[in-house]
Design a protein around this nucleic acid. Structure first.
Lengths: 327, 327
DNA sequence: GTGAAAGCGCTAACAG
DNA sequence: CTGTTAGCGCTTTCAC
């Protein structure tokens, strides 16, 4: 790769002029500009982002932290982020953290080192303190997950309310024995969806039965299937189950097929997220839709505002109950 | 963020010594080391990757290019890459290109600019020329996709042979009318799987019927569903279908459910990849398994060898026919 | 309009 | 063992 020096020499000008041609062409005589542009083309020169970043402290790169890429939930959000980012001349880098604090630190360092201009975090707040600390100095926005004390700007949905509605839907259908397949409560949404579940049951004077609640360790099909297996093993078992994630619900559905139970007659099931897959399984899954693309787009927008130094306001987006055939 | 100068001043040593403490602590007296380490802690100092990269031309970062994150096929590969990379002290950055040459260029520049030490590309060779050109100067490995002329090291499977086996499986089951749901042939695997399909039919003297072949524009459920819809609309329609990707197959399966066709009695179906979904749908999908995790791990291993300047050899990994309940 | 020179944060050769 | 210094590639005053 040619450097700016070589271009300068080739064009018979100073490096400063080359830099000007690239960044502020108006400040350069047409003729000089032409010479330089020719040299650039001739030498196949491309400015070094490294040198530039070191100097200007900006990289036009955005970091997106996510627990893992295998959950399709994130894919749609990423689309939203990407489209917005590109429109503003930014590019995004996806960072899979596996919810591992050590991994997070590495990516945090990238922003400290000016390798990235901002972060959109979808991680649960494992490093909550560090994240907040970081946000005092650098532009950071949370997406989906958020910190309750509102120190960090976020865009998410009202998980409690959404879960409440989902469970209420089950109750309205006549179910009195409602199970819950939940995920690790270190995810704020998991604990909030639990609250919504609790609220709905209480409101209708249904008792909370611990045996009907299963918290999975992982967020994948197997865990959902395993959870349903346990739930079905009860002598007195629920007639409907609310899973806090479609991935879990789909896994649960598989177990229902294996046990040859009629859905929704023998067991009703409702998921959460409305990932594409939820509408492809058989029978199509009733679920609570999150506006994933929009969440991504808005968080990107917010991040760009923060980068510009503007104040931003956190947002709760609308969710929507989508009734299909498992309830 | 404190700089190395501040640390040096605080510790009462030169910047060189600070640098030594960080990079080659053995070359420093224990006492000095202690002073410096204390200063580092005190000032909360972390070395700037930027400054270091500019100087050493290495970033310990690997770029992974992929068309899009929504295909679960990539998730498993990424796991493999990640585990290997971390073991070698590297971190990975995921770059979603949407198969857009312009997007690719941006990420290509990252390596030119020493922001990354190497690239694992899972993109179809849109920028084939540029990629090859780049690989002369920088460590690049292809994963899953590959260039036929073998100028670039790759790890993949024998798609033609795998497709051949899949279709043969269908034929052995007595099917004579076999449809194909294929993807855009700019993906090498798509054209190879077509060849395998062709080879199997020819071997058993079955005619290739253009009406039974549908090439999708996108790789998602809807496209698969749409493809199956078209296939079913024929007056003389196939009794079995081979889809070159599980995502497509799962979409096709949905259409079969909608039309209430018995699977596999009225329509047999076989997919490709063995993504987790394929075993969760109902009925579980027969498919050709790719060793995704291994593909990722090996390509990461290869890339690291390349970075060290070693010669590497491309590899074809083993696939495996997994017979479940759709055939 | 243009050039010279300083400096972003770091490492490595050289000298002591 | 440690310090001095040059320089990675770029942008941006400050002169001219």
């Amino acid at each position: 790769m040619a450097t700016i020096q070589e271009v300068a020499k080739y064009a018979g000008v100073s490096v400063a002029t080359v830099s000007r041609v690239i960044n502020t062409p108006d400040k350069v005589k047409k003729h000089t500009q032409f010479k330089v542009e020719n040299a650039i083309k001739e030498l196949n020169y491309e400015p070094s982002v490294l040198g530039r970043s070191l100097r200007t402290s900006q990289s036009k790169l955005l970091l997106v932290l996510l627990p893992n890429v295998s959950n399709p939930f994130y894919a749609k959000i990423i689309n939203g982020i990407q489209d917005k980012a590109i429109a503003f001349g930014y590019n995004i880098l996806l960072c899979e953290t596996d919810s591992d604090p050590d991994r997070e630190v590495i990516y945090f360092n990238m922003i400290k080192n000016k390798l990235a201009d901002g972060i959109i975090s979808m991680d649960p707040t494992v490093n909550k303190k560090k994240l907040i600390e970081l946000s005092n100095e650098y532009p950071i926005v949370q997406c989906s997950e958020y910190t309750k004390d509102k120190t960090l700007p976020f865009v998410t949905i009202d998980s409690k309310q959404a879960a409440y509605q989902a469970v209420k839907h089950l109750i309205k259908l006549g179910h009195k024995k409602i199970g819950l397949i939940n995920f690790d409560k270190k995810f704020l949404y998991a604990s909030e969806r639990y609250s919504g579940y609790e609220k709905a049951l209480k409101e209708f004077n249904l008792e909370i039965t611990d045996d009907w609640i299963y918290n999975t360790k992982h967020l994948n099909f197997e865990s959902g299937q395993q959870a349903m297996r346990v739930l079905l093993d009860q002598i007195d078992r629920p007639s409907a189950v609310f899973a806090v994630s479609d991935v879990l619900a789909v896994g649960a559905l598989k177990e229902l097929h294996i046990k040859q139970l009629g859905v929704p007659e023998e067991m009703a099931l409702i998921g959460f997220d409305n990932i594409e897959f939820s509408n492809v399984v058989y029978p199509p899954l009733t679920t609570v839709a999150q506006p994933m693309y929009e969440m991504g787009a808005i968080s990107a927008q917010m991040l760009m505002s923060k980068i510009k130094g503007e104040e931003v306001e956190s947002r709760f987006l609308e969710h929507q109950l989508i009734i299909r055939e498992t309830t």
